[in-house]
Nucleic acid binder design. Sequence first.
DNA 1: CTCACTTCTTAACTTAAGTGAACGTTTAAT
DNA 2: ATTAAACGTTCACTTAAGTTAAGAAGTGAG
Lengths: 193, 193
Amino acid sequence: MQNLLFDYISRYISLTEDEKSAMADLDVFRTVKKGTVLLKAGQKSRDGYFVLKGCLRTYYIIEGEEKTTEFYTEMEGVTPNCVVTNEPSGYYVATTEDAIIALSNPDMEADMFEKFPKFETLCRILSEELIVKQQTNIDDFKTSSPEQRYLNLLQKRPHLIQRVPQHQLASYLGVKPQSLSRLRARILEKSKS
Amino acid sequence: MQNLLFDYISRYISLTEDEKSAMADLDVFRTVKKGTVLLKAGQKSRDGYFVLKGCLRTYYIIEGEEKTTEFYTEMEGVTPNCVVTNEPSGYYVATTEDAIIALSNPDMEADMFEKFPKFETLCRILSEELIVKQQTNIDDFKTSSPEQRYLNLLQKRPHLIQRVPQHQLASYLGVKPQSLSRLRARILEKSKS
DNA sequence: CTCACTTCTTAACTTAAGTGAACGTTTAAT
DNA sequence: ATTAAACGTTCACTTAAGTTAAGAAGTGAG
């Protein structure tokens, strides 16, 4: 597990043995069973989650209905709004599979930043990269129809379609499960002719 | 202008006179006429834009149609994807009004980070904040209908509706101009009864 | 192993957005 | 000032998503 994380970080900055052992001392890894809710809407938490294995899902409950807004798989991380704003979380975070995650929190980060300024650079770079990814994401969503979004997902994250329940996927695509079924049937129909 | 920017930054970190004058030396301010395209899709640029006055719009041209994805007004900034990824820009950036903006670019930032590490902290904090804002944004969009989005906008950025042409607003809300007209008529009808 | 529950799909009907067109109004260019 | 272009609204029609309901398939708890 350690190595997965080190390899990931090494893509951005080089790590000395000192830095690696400081990270190891933090004891950040957790194994989490499928279906575990890590954070509930309305709660405050200081924890960010980085997925080493498995899948996390963020969702809202609006008028009794779950609205899935994102899936996080290997080498992706979530920092819930509450960690940054110190207000109650807007959404739930749960595992959709058995998972291994790394936890982070602002205090831990501040410590690391002080000891190893390099980590702050890492975080800045990761943040900037994430901003671009998020922007691309929202732009793709805004500029395409549910059908296009599904085809897009099929291209960009084909594994997701296998890995997560259809009704969560539907909600993620911004439609009802029935519409996702229909939309897939429609696509299949087109590809025949 | 300087002071607007300093005041904004002071919300996050305190600035010494040294730091202020280093910033002043950068000569970042530009006045831009309404309708100016600052960046075209397909181009590479190293410039980020921070709006001091006026309004910027980002949009795609997809199958000959403009798709507006965001408006940036006072004290909001855009860093086009190309600045971070060094790939061609996905979208256009243009002014919708006469504007005063501050330019930034990675080289300038790197210089400042070296001289004043405080600025890297500032950028990290701003980035983290932006990530949360973006997430909230996309979540709101995903979990609501065009009508709800319009009502939401009416609450959160009422000025935008006055400031910006309807067809750009429609596109921003994910519908055609005709649908925005209809949707507004529908809302008006409801509020009567 | 069975029963209950969740999930996925299909169908018929309703509602809202897309499309194409018309028309009056505003804006911009010459 | 005139004229063309762009803009916003309305309408009739088409298409796709929401809703409600039903049934088949898969899953899990006891």
